[in-house]
């Protein structure tokens, strides 16, 4: 027992020392951090005025600033806040100039940092400030062995925002990317580059194909209607469905007759799409919409009701259904859309 007690004593003392160290570290840390935070905040206040003037009339402020850590951080924060608010090419150009002048050296160093979160922060800032000068650094980071998947995705987004010409070939090769990743990359691509993706659609990975169709439907790009109708005709499964979704979000087809068979499809998504398409057509398909309002799927019913409401006599049709239909679910949906009109 004696020995055990001795051991316990030693362990207690060691643990107690650890505890004290921990506490001291916490207190020092907090004090230092609070102080620094205060300094940055004060400096930020002083910087906002001159930076704003620079944005407004291009008056130089560069001499007034020393390159210290606090200065740079304050500047970074001021610029970040501005970057969320400003619009217009001239202002963006000025933002970009300031960022390059004050922050480029810092970023060049930090993009190679061993600290993952530091690297990530830099990558986001590079995009926010449109720092095309960093393109080379970004690409070399991409080829680094330790580049994590989060970093890669952000790098692709940056390259997309910079309209980097080899974008298609590098992202199409990367098998780690999901549909969602591709979508967020493609959303940053401008029309000329997007054209490249459309032209090589056939050679794209399936995830990329889906993302391309999605982006078309999000941006409602009517110029790709012919392309979509082709894809709808030639492909199967999810891609066919996505193409149809894009078509229906554009809301217009060359010949609706070609699509009417979808109303009898076994896939509810297809029935929903046709319900949507019919809503933007002439009113001679209303009987078909009424039929779709009695569908077994909630989504199809809801879409059918919405489409019916698009027509002038839509309210009357839905009222009629509320009064006379024997289908409780159809009645319910009609009522819901009638109520929505009230709000």
């Amino acid at each position: 027992m004696e020995q055990e007690i001795k051991l316990l004593q030693i362990v207690s003392i060691i643990l107690f020392v650890i505890l004290l160290c921990l506490l001291t570290y916490l207190i020092i840390r907090k004090t230092v951090e609070n102080k620094q935070y205060k300094k940055i905040k004060e400096r930020k206040k002083q910087l906002i005025g001159p930076v704003f003037e620079y944005f407004r009339d291009g008056k130089k402020i560069m001499k007034k600033i020393n390159q210290t850590k606090v200065e740079r951080q304050a500047m970074e924060r001021v610029l970040s806040e501005f970057s969320e608010r400003i619009e217009g090419e001239e202002e963006e150009q000025r933002l970009h100039e300031l960022a390059v002048f004050y922050l480029k050296d810092k970023y060049v160093k930090e993009i190679k940092s061993r600290n993952w979160s530091k690297r990530m922060n830099v990558l986001y800032k590079i995009e926010d400030f449109h720092m095309q000068e960093m393109e080379r650094n970004v690409i070399s980071r991409l080829h680094n062995r330790n580049c994590t998947s989060d970093e890669k995705i952000q790098i692709y987004r940056i390259l997309a925002a910079f309209q980097y010409e080899k974008l298609w070939s590098i992202i199409n090769q990367d098998e780690m990317l999901s549909e969602k990743n591709y979508r967020s990359i493609l959303l940053r691509v401008k029309t000329a580059m997007f054209e490249q993706f459309i032209q090589s659609f056939y050679y794209c990975r399936e995830e990329l194909q889906l993302a391309i169709l999605d982006v078309i439907s999000m941006k409602k790009k009517i110029e790709y209607l012919v392309f979509l109708e082709n894809v709808f005709e030639k492909y199967d499964g999810e891609i066919k469905l996505k193409a149809l979704k894009a078509i229906s979000s554009i809301g217009y087809v060359r010949n609706i007759e070609d699509y009417l068979y979808l109303a009898k499809s076994k896939v509810w998504q297809e029935r929903m799409m046709i319900a949507k398409l019919l809503g933007t057509n002439r009113d001679n398909y209303i009987p078909l919409l009424i039929k779709l309002l009695h569908d077994s799927s909630w989504w199809v019913r809801s879409q059918a009701a919405e489409s019916i409401m698009n027509f002038k006599k839509g309210r009357d049709i839905l009222l009629e259904i509320v009064k006379h239909s024997k289908d409780k679910f159809a009645q319910d949906m009609a009522r819901e859309w009638l109520n929505k009109g009230d709000n």
Partner: peptide, 26 residues
Amino acid sequence: IYLEFAILIFLLSCIYGSIFSMAAVL
């Protein structure tokens, strides 16, 4: 000796509990 042992255990559990609490604060 039992008392000594018990007090030590008690103290120890108090210290390690605090260490975990402070680690959580960290």
